[in-house]
Structures are given as structure tokens and as C-alpha cells.
Write a protein that binds this DNA or RNA. Structure first.
Lengths: 181, 181
DNA sequence: GAGGACATGTAAACGGTTACATGATTAC
DNA sequence: GTAATCATGTAACCGTTTACATGTCCTC
């Protein structure tokens, strides 16, 4: 699938960015959705430039720092990402190690499992708070009544995250109650 | 993390199994949660046997077929999986390509996006039905009032799946409504 | 006679994570 | 003086996916 390529094009379809910007957007802002390391971002940008999907928009040079290379998407790159977005795909499977731990809960003392659940629940509560904040921020930037607004798409994705975290928290609470019976 | 090792031990903690059985359980029954290929299962079983985490319980030989090697967990393996289950861990990020497509929905015609959502929703509805069936099946096997019953743990995990699919379906419906505005 | 189930395994390719390397500036 | 930020990139490793290989039995 090489999903990293599509992730990069998805971001560049919105605005010109440098490799560093892309890493920041992925790891800080939309962190829990996708992540990427420099080793994936920089070589992939180089490949995509060769293939004409993106082009160097400009280079910002400060003497004491590596040149900041800002890329923009080309018409060809836009077509590729649009095609991919419309392409039908298979649903993927949930991959979460904590579910595997829950599958083993019968093996451990209920008090121990309760502690585990408490810790995981807390982490999901933090994520939930971060997503809600992110949505509030995005709402202020939104062009109302325009569903072709990229901000509206961003909000939809983060809303998924909100619902996911709420589900996870509720599920933890239900399991915690069971450990106390 | 080498989560494949923990997945194998989690299954073997419940009952003795062959490599083939394990693949079946992962890819058919609990499919959408974890998957594994033969290239992961067989070498990992061999390594775990060497390390004394599992042992060969017996070999069923039919002349016309490779010998069916059934493994059982050892006390040492049991300790390893219990330790891991109680070990605190970081929450993982959601990795789902369709969310990336939704992030790009502003790029495509609303009718096209509607079709995409319809297809994905359908797939999640099928999964939901399969999970509900699985739970009904598990409920009949359950030892009631015993939370140390492995079946109860299985049910909890599949219940997570149920809630996840319901969330996904609702989210698709909300987005579909937006495409029609 | 074609294809799937059973049952083990290997090989090659891909994708992702962690760590390394450089080097000046700024903040504590 | 220590650590973080900015900014590019490389190297080594690990885990996963897909395909290949063998061989018989059973069903359509």
C-alpha cells in the first residue's frame, strides 16, 4: 500500500510544506492517527519529486542550518491522491496490544487487571481532551456551509478520534466494574 | 514488542494447539483483531520451544501429510505471558487508511465520497454481524459468575469489536448525510 | 480435472521504529 | 553547560505481507 506516500500527498494537497513540517504535523498535531520518521519522509519526498508528483517550490537558506526545502503538489500529484481517495478499499483490522492483554485477563488477579485498566483509561482520557481541543481550534478556522472545505474534513477525522476515545473509556469502565465483583 | 510471540502464548495458555490451528484461530475466528502468516508462526514456535516457553505435546502423523505438531505452554511460558499482561504499556495510535481518505474528502465530488462511505459502511456492518454471532456462540460456552473464565475474557474483547463497528457505522452515516447537503 | 482443505515450512520484499550524524541558535 | 529547536539525511534492525514450495485427499 505504501500508505506513507498517500499521507504525504494528503498533507501537500492542502498547502506547501517542508519535510520537517510534515513530520511535525504528523507526530504532533494528528499524532495518534499517523506517524512517520525522517527516514520515511525525506527519501519518499525525493522519489515523489523525481516522479513529478511534487515539485520544489523554494528553498529557505539560513547559513547556520540545512536548507529548508519546501515542496508543493503538482497537478499530476493531485490526480494521484484524488484517484486513491476514490478507490474502493478493504477495511483493516484493529491492532491494539491492550486488547490482547484483555484477552489474557482471566490469567491475572482482578486487582492487577483493575490497575492496568485504570492506567489505560487515563491515557485515553488525555487523548480525548486533546482531540476536543483540536476540534475547538479547527472550528474557528472553518468556512461555514462549505463542505469542500479541507477544515471540515479534518474535523470529521478528529471527531472519529473523539468517539473512539469515548468508546475505549466506557469499555475500560465496564471491565473495571467486572474486576470488582 | 514482538507482539506475535505474545499472541501465540495467549492462545496456547488456553489450550494446546498446532501452528496450523493458531493460524486458523487468528485469521478466521478472531480475524479482524490479529493476523499472522505461516512465516511468522512456525519459526516463532520453534524459537519458543528452544527457549522452553512451550513444549511439543505430541505429533499426529497421517502418512500423506506433514506431521501435525501440537504444542502446549510450559510453566515458564505461563509466567512470561502473565508478566507481559500485567506490564504497563503505552496506548497505540489508530491506523486506518480510510480515515486518511476521509481527510481528503474535500478533494472529491460529494457523490463519489457518498459511494465510498456506503461501501465501507457495508463492510463494517458485516463485521458487526459476525461479532454478534461470535458473542452469542461464546455466551453458550461460558461458566457463569466466574470472571477467571477465559471465555469471559474473549467476550470482552469481541464486545470491544462490536462497539467499534457500531461507532464506525454511525460515523459513516453522519458523513454520508453531510455529502448530501 | 480444477480448486480447496490440510500441514509444514522458506524466501523476498516492504514498511516502520529507533538510533545516529551534523551544527548553530536559543532558553534555562 | 545542558537541553531543546530547527532541518536535513543515513543505517541498522525488526515485524509484516505476499508469494512460493511440497503433496495428498476430498468435493464439484
Amino acid at each position: 500500500m505504501s500508505s506513507i506516500r498517500y499521507a504525504l500527498l494528503s498533507l501537500l494537497a492542502r498547502e506547501p510544506l517542508s519535510g520537517y513540517d510534515i513530520k511535525q504535523q504528523m507526530n504532533n498535531r494528528l499524532g495518534p492517527f499517523w506517524k512517520a520518521g525522517s527516514n520515511q519522509v525525506y527519501p519518499e519526498l525525493a522519489k515523489m519529486e523525481e516522479e513529478g508528483l511534487i515539485r520544489l517550490q523554494g528553498v529557505e537558506q539560513l547559513t547556520y542550518r540545512p536548507a529548508r526545502k519546501v515542496y508543493e503538489i503538482t497537478e499530476s500529484g493531485r490526480q494521484v491522491i484524488i484517484e486513491w481517495t476514490m478507490e474502493p478499499g478493504e477495511v483493516e483490522h484493529i491492532r491494539d496490544n491492550f486488547l490482547l492483554k484483555a484477552y489474557n485477563s482471566w490469567l491475572v488477579a482482578p486487582e492487577k487487571m483493575y490497575e492496568q485498566l485504570e492506567g489505560i483509561k487515563k491515557q485515553h482520557e488525555e487523548r480525548l481532551a486533546a482531540y476536543l481541543e483540536k476540534i475547538a481550534e479547527l472550528e474557528t478556522m472553518r468556512t461555514h456551509g462549505n463542505e469542500q472545505d479541507p477544515i471540515a474534513s479534518s474535523i470529521s477525522v478528529v471527531e472519529f478520534g473523539v468517539e473512539y476515545e469515548r468508546l475505549y473509556i466506557k469499555w475500560c469502565e465496564r471491565l473495571m466494574a467486572k474486576q470488582q465483583q
